[in-house]
Amino acid sequence: MNHEDLLTDCESVINEMFARCARNAPNFGEIEECFKNSLKKTVQKYLSTASFETPTTKEITDFLQQIQADDLFLAMACANGNERAWWEFDQQHRAYLERVARHLARTEIDAQEVVDTVYVELYGTRVVDGERVSKFATYSGRGSLRGWLRTVIWHSLVDLHRASHDEVSLDEMTENVGESYTHASFANTNLGGEDEMIEQIAKDRYRKATLTAIENAFASLDNHEKLLLLYYHVEDLKLREIARMVENSASPLRDWFQRKSANRESNPDSRIHESTIMRWLEKSYAKVLKLFRTELRSIHNLSEEEVEICLELATQDLASPNLYRNLMTT
């Protein structure tokens, strides 16, 4: 079945969604066309994911039913400039927007400025082909409106900082917004006398092998395992925070990790605890360790004792930044 046929098949579901939303909010004006077009656009985007086979009508129907229809309806009505919708939006979300902004921004002035800017963006002051372009038009309803709004606030804050710090890179900028920051720094190795230098050369050999092996071991992981490790180690997410990301039973991240779990089959909606995340991490560490050891033995021809030396290096400084840069360029 081609994409056009699939969309036609889903027409009735889209109509039902619109009818339900219109009943819930009858004062939001004439937005039938833009609401339905938004849904169709979202379905088209879903269909166009190249690496997958064309979904069935049921899959598309399930997909549509996951959309936050009422939030989308409100967003489309606001995009259309409906007074009532804007009032509802203001009542429901302004306080939340302000809380998010105050939490993320460095100063109260920044927080107020970013909320003002977001409001203006949401309304849309830019006119293209005679039509005002509202930021709301980019909301698809795949997540909650609040979730989308806090992301918009985040990006606006980054833009605000960029505007005032032209010379700072985007990555540095994101580190200055919000709670955490990421830094990579390895202590420089202090070279002493001749003995220390010889020892240092030997160490450097193991260091180089260690870095290459850990790099390849990490590269061999599945993407969801890599992301889990990056969230935990680089972004400093706590176990409970990672658990929050997979608390939705339909979350693919959760699904991937639980594929082979008996609990998944017997109780697919069970709560994800911190201990579960810890187990996922442990599995990933075990995989990395196995790949790491295999590479050191088979590619670098190191003995068991030498592999242990490489592991010992984990408790010391692994390499100077220069060595790492050299590794990256070879």
């Binding site: 993320l104 919000g178 955490s180 990421t182 992301l227 990056l230 972004e235």
Partner: peptide, 10 residues
């Protein structure tokens, strides 16, 4: 990635 993690922390 940093944005997603900050949103969870938020």
């Amino acid at each position: 990635r940093h944005v997603t993690s900050e949103l969870v922390k938020l």
